[in-house]
Structure formats: C-alpha cells, structure tokens
Design a protein around this nucleic acid. Structure first.
Length: 450
RNA sequence: GUGGCUGUAGCUCAGCUGGUUAGAGUGCCAGAUUGUGAUUCUGGAUGUCGUGGGUUCGAGUCCCAUCAGCCACCCCA
C-alpha cells in the first residue's frame, strides 16, 4: 500500500513556476543588502529551547515548534531571525566587530493557524545594524527598503514611519507608561477597527480613561504632510524629554532620506504605526504598496535598545527590518508584476542525431562560456516532441542542428514565441553567432511580456 | 488556540430533495506520408467523489471524527 504523498498544514512545495520568482526576489534582496555592506550570516534552524524562550512572550511560546532530541535536549525551531541574531552577536561580537551589519535570509517556523499568505514555514529576509545608536543606521534602513522595492520594479509604495519615543513620551505624560504594550497594540489597529474600536479595546485592556483615549487618538489620527505632522507632534509631546527626542529624530530622518534621493511623499510619517512587538524603542517602519494596501506591510522593522540582554551584559542596540517575502510575492503576482520566467535557461539544444551527442554537448559548453544558459535535450526523440517540450518549458529559443546544418556549417535558431527561424554560421567551435541569435530571441520574448 | 465556510479526474468545476456502469471544459497521451512546437482535425486514458468510521435496502449526496485549504479573531511576515 503506497503512502499518500502530502504536506503538513502550513508547509508548501514550490513548483518551478513559483520557485523562480521567489529566488528572483531573494537574489534582489541579497544584492541590495550587500550593496550597503550588510554581511551574510547563517545560523542553525534548531536552537536550545532556552535560547528561544528566554525573551519570547507567551504568544511566541505557544507558536514554537519544540521537542526533545535524541540526546534528551529540549530544542526548538527558530520562529524568527532576530533571536538567533541576538544569540549570534552575544556569542561572536568579538570576532565580527561592532557595529555589525548583517543580513540573514532563511526559513523560520511558527505553529500558528494558517491563512492566505500566512504559513507555518516561511522565509524572512532580515537586515540589521547592531552595535550603534546612531541615527545613520535608522536612515539607512529606510534607504534599503526604498532601494529594494525599487529594484523589484515597484514604484508606488509608501514607507510609513513613526517613533516609539513619541508614543512613549505621550504615554508618560498621560501616566500610562506601564501599559504601553496594551495601548500600542490597540492603537496599531486604528486603520482596521477605527477610532471607536481602538477606544473600546484600550479601555478594556489598559483601563484607559476618556481623556487618555482622546489624547491617544488625537495623536494616532494625525494626518497630513510630514511638516504638518512634525509640528503637531511637537505640540503633543511638549515638555516630555523622551517624546521631544523622538520628534527630533523623525525630523532628521525625513530630511536625510529626502537628501539621499528618496522621492517626495514616499516616506510618510504616520503616528498610528506602533508595531505590536514590545522590543522596539525607536524608529519603526512599515511599508505599504499603494496599489494594494489591503495586503499589509511588505517590509517592516525598527530600532531596539538592547538586542541581547538575555545573553550578555553588553548593551547591543540596533536597528533593522525584514522583507515579507511571501506577502510581496503574492502582491506582485496580483499586480501582474512578476517577470515571466519559466525556465532558468534561455535555449534548448535539440538532440537531433544520437550519434552527435558529444557535438551537442560541446556546443552547449561553448554557449555557456559565452554567457548563455542552455539545456540539451537528453534523447533523440522526434523533433516535434523536443520542440513541444521547449515550448512548454518556456524557452525563448531552440537550437536545431541536423545533418544538413552540420554539412553546411550552420545552425538553425528558432524563436519559439514567433515561430521564426534564423540560420547562423556555426563551424563546430565558434558559437558566438548562435549566442547572439539566442539573445535576440530572449530580448524579443522580454518585450512581449512587457 | 477559538469560531465559520470548503474538499468530486493534473487544473477549474457540474452532479436537484440519498437510488443502477460519476460528467464537462481544459490539460495529458497517441495519430494526421516518420527534420519543426504552441493554432486545427481524429482517437484514447484518467477518478478508492480528501481520509476513516456511522446511519440506510442503498451515500459523492445525511451524521461524526480526522487531514488539508480559505475567512474572521488573535498575532504577525
């Protein structure tokens, strides 16, 4: 009796058509991160349970995949890349040096309930700068997000920025400093449940008074251009040192990103952005696609004061963000913005004559050396079958060389999209003419796909 | 974790109040003088009706459980 092939809830297979755009995004993220000097690291998927639970809330504890390994150790699968980073830095700060800029693209696991775009195994693309409190790093975080989405071919997006110090400053003034987590979590839902919903939740979870609610909502509902919001924020937190510091930093960040060339309007102050996570202490950002606001933030992050307090006495402040790969992928697909890639190679070399196999493989080597990815059909099936395969796999071109071509010292390059064939010279050694013709087919196909 | 909706050929779905050998489109396979695909024509195969129990003379159709997907809450990427 065969075993039914199936996958666990929240875990997925990626077929080539899905894996290719995914890799494209990952490669783009990698390229952008590296262009800022972020360095790659990797850490084990499995950690000692105490590493993962040390800092986590009850919520993350519940979502944790945990078990006892064969040696009787309590272990768990990482549920984000931040905790492993904290452990990593506490363990290796001496070796890597500070400030430490790293990126980490890897899978994480959370045993929570699934939904569209929410899985139990998903990939995070984090980048962080650890070991400095300088606002430069916060500014850079915004620049990286801007560059990354731009590199992915997206132009209509808004990076919403807020500052925890501004929120905390107001909370201090209102005497709610001890209830910040509950209040912020409620405020974060403003866009979703509205002012009344937020009021109700705050009253319930943080026992806020009417005056407190009114003050908090007046802050979170602030709208307008950055200059207007900064002026209003300044008034609201006046007299509170924490809040004033936050406003100053927001002011500097807005100016700096503009100076660095981020288009006007793309960085938008939004006092309602709180981010539910407790550990944020400074700048927080969320990134919204203007054409698809409903999908939520596709890149989020912020500043934290002390990354690794559970692992070391050394204070390790930092700032970083994470790209929501799966969410972004879903969004790009919905917007029809995914590049139409279906095979990583550009052309298929038809294996016309089984006796000439080595000649075809030699041609493939020559084309690869010329920078053209090619696949050689493995067996001498009917030409029609081979072309059918080439078409189905989405190759831009098929290279056909049979007896008559070999005799004439030429090759046929068929453009699969148009059906037209070009005959180019090929003496068995110099494949540059073929490579050039394949390139033409690839370019033509790219134009077709917009 | 709580509540709701859904689950029929590879894919998208039809199958009225339970009744004989479960259908369509698309895809797939084969062929239309054996060196040219995707369009056309002809022919063909395909389903333990998610899985396991139960009710019934009889269940794709009703009940329960389970697995998986979707939606809301929660939380977040």
């Amino acid at each position: 009796m065969p075993i039914t092939p199936r996958t666990l809830k929240g875990f997925r297979d990626y077929l080539p058509a899905a894996a290719m755009p995914r890799e494209w995004i990952v490669e783009t993220a990698r390229r952008v991160y590296r262009s800022y000097g972020f360095r790659p690291i990797d850490t084990p998927a499995l950690e000692y349970l105490e590493i993962l639970t040390g800092k986590g809330s009850d919520e993350t504890d519940k979502q944790l995949y945990r078990f006892t390994d064969h040696g009787g150790r309590d272990v768990g699968l990482r549920f984000d890349l931040t905790v492993p980073l904290a452990r990593f830095v506490a363990q290796h700060a001496q070796e890597v040096g500070l400030p430490f800029k790293r990126y980490h693209i890897a899978s994480v696991w959370r045993g929570e309930n699934t939904q569209a775009g929410r899985y139990r195994e998903f990939m995070q693309c984090d980048f962080d700068t650890v070991g400095t409190t300088a606002l430069t790093a916060d500014i850079e975080m915004v620049l990286v997000v801007n560059d990354l989405l731009t590199a992915l071919g997206i132009s209509a997006f808004t990076i919403r920025v807020n500052h925890r110090a501004v929120l905390n400053g107001l909370l201090e003034k209102l005497g709610l400093a001890g209830k910040s987590a509950a209040v912020l979590r409620a405020l974060d839902k403003l866009g979703k449940i509205g002012a009344e919903g937020v009021t109700a939740e705050m009253a319930k979870t943080a026992e806020t008074t009417e005056q407190q609610n009114a003050a908090l909502l007046s802050l979170a509902s602030l709208q307008g251009d950055n200059t207007t919001i900064l002026a209003e924020l300044k008034k609201l937190v006046a007299g509170d040192e924490t809040g004033e510091r936050g406003v100053t930093e927001l002011h500097e960040l807005v100016a700096a990103t503009a100076a660095a060339g981020v288009p006007a309007g793309r960085v938008q102050l939004d006092p309602s952005i709180a981010r539910g996570l407790d550990y944020y202490t400074g700048v927080v950002i969320e990134t919204q696609l203007d054409e698809l606001p409903g999908i939520g933030s596709v890149a989020s992050g912020g500043r934290y004061d002390n990354l690794a307090s559970t692992f070391t006495k050394q204070e390790l402040p930092g700032v970083g963000a994470s790209l929501g790969l799966d969410r972004l992928l879903a969004a790009l697909e919905e917007l029809g913005r995914l590049p139409a890639v279906s095979t990583p190679a550009d052309a298929l070399i038809c294996l016309f004559d089984a006796d000439r196999r080595d000649a075809y493989l030699a041609l493939a080597a020559q084309l690869r050396a010329a920078g053209t990815g090619v696949e050689v059909y493995p067996e001498a099936k009917k030409l029609g079958k081979q072309l059918q395969y080439a078409d189905k796999q989405g190759f831009a071109a098929a290279v056909i060389i049979g007896q008559s071509e070999f005799d004439a010292g030429e090759a046929q390059v068929k453009h699969l999209a148009s059906g037209e064939s070009a005959t180019v010279a090929y003496d068995g050694r110099d494949a540059n003419a073929i490579a050039a013709e394949i390139r033409r087919a690839v370019d033509a196909a790219a134009v077709d796909h917009g």
